[in-house]
Each structure stands twice: as structure tokens, then as C-alpha cells.
Design a protein around this nucleic acid. Structure first.
Lengths: 210, 210
DNA sequence: GCATAAATCCCCCATTTGCGGTATGTCCTC
DNA sequence: GAGGACATACCGCAAATGGGGGATTTATGC
């Protein structure tokens, strides 16, 4: 884990100017050694021959595969590679698409050189660098929905419902009759405005009600 | 948004030594002004009178409320306050407990002074500073389970199942007979080793199979 | 003190679900 | 060309689920 530099970097970026500037920046010290690729296909072709500590990937990559699709291919290949996105896109689809596809970091172009070097270093050492606004959005996905209209008992029932327990199973675990379980569930459905178990489980998990 | 310093900080920390050292560090420039509280109760009592840009909260806080419980109280009060945890705990319960309760950042004690100042600055400016290993664990919660044993058609059925559609509803949407839907669902249950709709929905959502 | 919410229990009844089979045709691989 | 996965389709049956009612007790708040 505690591998010492120079770290091998691979930059995948289709813009000629950005590519050479980034290469210049990253190779300016002896800390990193950066090779560059101008599209996903070239990079994927070279990948079997190289073993980068970190991939820096643009999202827009000309006519072929984009960065997120390339990431998915890498992931499917089974190799565990660190990839940080380096892009101008900050819409949810790009950000969470990249993270779900295996990115370990997400930096916006416009990050200052000194912060960028720091982020690259962090990524090589097991961190997950993200531009401030991106990081904030990522953590806010954990923040749970405040106003949960369910009573304590209803929440208990809902939890067991999400575990796949039947009415009978719930009644045994809570030491109440099946009828009471039914009543609680009816109330839960009314409050959450759903009409089936599947919906209530989906809501509960997605909105972290349990 | 682009408020200029000095930023008002509030540090909640029960250890006398850490508290005074942190205060010294944070107040060393003109960038921040930091007031300190030695437990959650003292801080919550003072809260109506103050308006901090950022709260730095320890998790272990002596005999009363701990940091996460304090966070929940703040959240329930309805005030939108930035809170960064500053702690030695890096178990999942602490990390994700704090994030779910509203923390916007998570720093480990042991962060160097210069990185800490940078993190505090970032938090004040809308970022979400996290110690590298923490950040990595947070982003890895997005990484989706690679090998999904379901066929394409089965995934389509599963998606509709998660939307709360009945067999009949699914059969209409996919233009296949109810019997076929049932067969697909039987196969899905076998592959995922579940025996009810609630379980399959819970699995699918939690493991991002859909 | 009275309204309200929560928690407990019961009935009826139609629909849905889950499990056990079986069966056909396609496409792909060995 | 046999075997396998996939998608399609059917039957029967018992159990679970969901919607409609109604009911009591215990807190809690105004």
C-alpha cells in the first residue's frame, strides 16, 4: 500500500492543449510520471501493457466511447484501477454516473494547479479527492429525510416489512396479533400513499425511513 | 454565499488539551474566530444566541449526549448548520451515522494543522472535507455490485417489480403474458435466493441491481 | 374534560403472490 | 448435434396481501 513515487499516471483527454498542459504540470517534479492518451480506445488498447497507479479521465472524449463508458469497460475487465474524473461536467448524471461506475474521485477542470497536484497525490495514496461542491453533493445523499410521519410502532413494523417478514412473522416478533399488524400496515400505506409491499419497501429504503 | 471571513467557528470537544490547542490553532490568524464548548449540552444551550458558519464536533463527549446525538438534535431543530466531525473514530457506524445525521464533513484527529486549516476553510466555503480514507469509503458506497446474474429481460421485470407493479401490470407493460412474468420472477427469486417481493425489492435497491 | 393520536384487536372478501409442475422455440457453445 | 441459457406460455393450489368496515384502551394536548 505504501508504495513510493514516482507514481505512474495515465491521462485520457482529447483536447490537445489541456493534454499537454496537464502533462507538463504533472511531470514537472519527480513525484509523478504521466503518460497521455487522446481517446478511450487508445487508452484501453494500451492498458494491458501498463499498470498505472492512477487514471485521470475526461468525460467528453470525442467521437467514440466517453469517459464513463470507458470506466465501465475497465471495471468489467476486473482490474482494480484508481480512476479520477477530470471534467467540466457537474450535473448529477455525470457525477453519480461516474461514481457508480467506479470512479474514486471527481475533479472539476478549473481546479488550481496546486490543488490538482495535491488531489492527485491524495488519490494515489488511497484518498478520494473531489472538488468542494461535488463532495458536498455526495455527502448530502446520506442526509436522511427529516419529516417521517410514521409513529414509533409503525417504524418497527416497516423495518420488519423491509426484511421480508410476513404478517405472521411480524406479529410473532412484536408480540402482537396479526390483525394489529394489518392495521399498522394499513396506516403506513395511507401515510406514505402507497398500495403495496414493493412500493413501501422501495420508498423506505430509498428515503432511508428505516 | 461568498461571505468573507472571519468565519465564526464553534468547537465542541471535551478534552481540555485538544480544546485549547485547537482554539489556538484556529484563532492564530484573522481568518477564523473560534469559540469552544466542552460538551454537547453547553453548546446546545448557547446555540440560540450564536450563528456559527461551522461547527466542529467531537464524537465522544463525556457523560451526556455524544456528538452524533447532538447532531440529530440540531437537525431536528430545523436550523441548517454546517457541521464537521472531528474524531478518532473511523468505524462505519460512526462515519455513516454522522453523515446520515447531517454532518457535512468528517476529519480524523491526527490531521496535520495545515490540512486541518484547509479543511475548515473548505467546509466554510461549501465543501465537504473528509480525511482520505474516509472519503474513499464514502465514494465506494456508490460502486455498484459488478456481477449481476440476471438476464436482460429479468432486469426489466425486476425494475417494474421495484416500481410496485403487479404481475398483470408487468405483463401489460412488457407485452407478454402473466405466466411469463411469473416464470421470470421465479427465476429471479432463485438467482437472488429470495422468497418474496419485499426481499427482492430490498436487495435490488440496496445492491443497485436496478 | 374532550378531541386526537397511537396501539391494540376483529370481521369479510377479492386479488395477488409463491411454489409445484410442464412445455415450446431460439440462439449459442462445445 | 447435444446441452445450456433464455424467453415464452400454461395449469393448479394454498397462503399472503390489500381494501372495506368497526371496536377498545391509553396517552397527550388544548
Amino acid at each position: 500500500m505504501a508504495k513510493k513515487g514516482p507514481f505512474q499516471l495515465a491521462l485520457v483527454e482529447d483536447d490537445e492543449e489541456v493534454r499537454s498542459l496537464m502533462k507538463l504540470l504533472l511531470n514537472s517534479g519527480s513525484e509523478f510520471y504521466c503518460s497521455v492518451y487522446e481517446n478511450a480506445e487508445a487508452f484501453l488498447a494500451a492498458l494491458p501493457e501498463i499498470d498505472p497507479d492512477l487514471i485521470l479521465m475526461d468525460i467528453d472524449l470525442g467521437p467514440g466511447l466517453n469517459g464513463i463508458e470507458a470506466l465501465k469497460k475497465i471495471k468489467r475487465s476486473g482490474r482494480k484501477l484508481n480512476t479520477v474524473m477530470l471534467t467540466v461536467h457537474e450535473d448529477d448524471d455525470s457525477v453519480f454516473g461516474a461514481l457508480c461506475s467506479g470512479a474514486t474521485g471527481y475533479l472539476l477542470k478549473g481546479t488550481t494547479p496546486v490543488k490538482l497536484l495535491d488531489a492527485v497525490r491524495q488519490a494515489c495514496l488511497g484518498g478520494a479527492p473531489m472538488s468542494p461542491g461535488i463532495a458536498r453533493r455526495v455527502v448530502s445523499t446520506f442526509h436522511i429525510g427529516q419529516s417521517n410521519p410514521l409513529s414509533t410502532r409503525e417504524k418497527e413494523v416497516l423495518t420488519l416489512l423491509c426484511d421480508g417478514e410476513s404478517y405472521r412473522g411480524i406479529s410473532k416478533k412484536l408480540f402482537i396479533s396479526g390483525s394489529t399488524v394489518r392495521t399498522h400496515i394499513k396506516h403506513i400505506y395511507e401515510k406514505l400513499e402507497v398500495h403495496s409491499r414493493a412500493e413501501v419497501v422501495a420508498r423506505a429504503i430509498r428515503e432511508k425511513l428505516v
